[in-house]
Design a protein around this nucleic acid. Sequence first.
DNA 1: GTTTAGCACTCTGGTCGCTCAAGTGCTATC
DNA 2: GATAGCACTTGAGCGACCAGAGTGCTAAAC
Lengths: 346, 346
Amino acid sequence: MPNPGQIGPREREILTAIVETYISSGEPVGSRTLSRLNKDGLSPATIRNVMADLVDAGFLEQPHTSAGRIPTAQAYRYYVDQISGKAVLSPSDQNLISESLAGTVDIQQFLERTSHVLSLVSSGVGVAISRTGPQYALEHVYFSRQAPNKVLAVVVTKSGVVHDRIMRLENDLSQTDLDTAANYINTNFRGWTVDAVKTELGRRIEHERTEYDRLMQSLRELYKSGALATNAPNVFVEGVANLVAKEEDRERLRELLRTLEEKERIAELLSAYLDTQQESVRVVIGLEEAVPEMRNFVLIGAPARVGDEMQGSLAVIGPTRMDYQHTITAVSYIAQLFDKLLNENV
Amino acid sequence: MPNPGQIGPREREILTAIVETYISSGEPVGSRTLSRLNKDGLSPATIRNVMADLVDAGFLEQPHTSAGRIPTAQAYRYYVDQISGKAVLSPSDQNLISESLAGTVDIQQFLERTSHVLSLVSSGVGVAISRTGPQYALEHVYFSRQAPNKVLAVVVTKSGVVHDRIMRLENDLSQTDLDTAANYINTNFRGWTVDAVKTELGRRIEHERTEYDRLMQSLRELYKSGALATNAPNVFVEGVANLVAKEEDRERLRELLRTLEEKERIAELLSAYLDTQQESVRVVIGLEEAVPEMRNFVLIGAPARVGDEMQGSLAVIGPTRMDYQHTITAVSYIAQLFDKLLNENV
DNA sequence: GTTTAGCACTCTGGTCGCTCAAGTGCTATC
DNA sequence: GATAGCACTTGAGCGACCAGAGTGCTAAAC
């Protein structure tokens, strides 16, 4: 049987109807149900023929002989391509989102609220991460001696993100030494990217090695202890309760929750699929490639940009059976809002 | 029937056996099971008599006529009182905990790891919060002008906690003004509690009202915008996946997960039950008074102290059916470790 | 040639009835 | 006071059964 025939307008319509019915009902959809639902009265028999073709083409499958059909990953991908661009966000959702995010003033706060509001408007889990930022411009560093050999380092970037860490030094430094060192860095490197500062500072320490220069010794000490290391990205995950209703299998639910608590893996997942280049929302169907536990799960995400700079990512992770239109538009809307709100505020 | 009789040694032994059997099996325990289990061979009939008394005294209840008995909250309380002090932490758990927490250097990190390790060694959810600290000593403040009317404030306390926030000012201030203000605060108030600083600063702004004093104007501006406000306490919750196995009812599970995401409520719950006065671990049976969704749940927690100062709280929230000995000792051990590790480091 | 009607067949899920095991309370006895 | 015996209750498990939904195939209609 030659493949080319199957994506005519009739097939498309039927496939779309199957996907939508399955999303809302959760049960395999049969030919009679579909015929009743369909406006232009096609008989069940006709629909059965079309369905048989769609099975051959890999869009549908049957759990068992006498059951209806359910969509495959391929069908979802096709469906998402079909509807993309068509959807409009409902005014009530738009309000909810705007109100939740109005008045946010820094990135962390925005992302935290984003994960929450996404979990409310979708039937999945709302996720947001802030980009860990060695590539951002340095605004200010500050060192404070807490105890012998113990120093608190605060690194502030231009975008307003604060990284603080407590470090242990090999050799103690006085607060005066620390102030001198901080002053040196602030004077010489303000506006550089943190990465560039690290490189250049490393070079200077190495080359301008004047054994008895107190300042250089302090800097070396601080550098070794990772004074300029930036924090791990913040990962916000909310709405796991939504999954309880969606995932039947107890054991899988448990695995899922466990995975969603491993922040690093979530961060990896998002950065694997979302990058600056992409325009707006990306829908990834078939997350099991990256995370086996997420068989039958989908990621709908977008980069969070201010201007051209990617400051983080936001996404919904949910079951393949989800309201795509709704979720896609919500993610897209928030991504735009991010740019808009933080552009005017920063 | 007179009450005083029921807590003789025989009754205690049987009650303890019932609680333990129920905890491990999860099913109502009957007289025969118990008779088989009990070393000194009491017959089922005898046990039945005792059980009937225990039901009258409010320690046991029956789901229905022909089922075994299950312990009431009162029985759990009695049981916990009985075993308290007796338990010893298994070496493997002790290792796991020590290794997880070794090398932590600040409070946040310690508490974050604590919530994780508690979720591993117990069958419940590991929870930890850091105390929000207006009562802690000020180490240093720092203001940075991000944009017109927008200032980043960083407040560092002696204990090494960093509070950062972005504020919007009514009237713009230059970076020089900000530096002057920060310098004034640092010079005058280092070592004061944040609360005291706020009070005194408010007083000075009010009384030493010299309209044309630039410094006072800056301070007033910053004060109004909440420069010294401290962050909400951090709440760490881990191990919700454990609940999937423990909670049968789907709908309740969902409620529970939702509640556990509301950080403020969790923070309230812990601070309601845990305070500085208490010695070591407290076991609260019957959480439904504070949080209705947590019917049949238990909190096992302790304050996280360094010396006499309470820096936060740590707890396990889990089903009444949990391994109390195990969990109590784990919580107690971590609370001690907190004091020890952070005392030697701070 | 496409569409439809009809038919025999195959599953799944729910209901009914039955039995069985576990447990109970009560009474009589040791 | 402890125990043995006995009649009674109840939920869980199991098989039989049936209805509903769906299928593929064939033959007829458009």
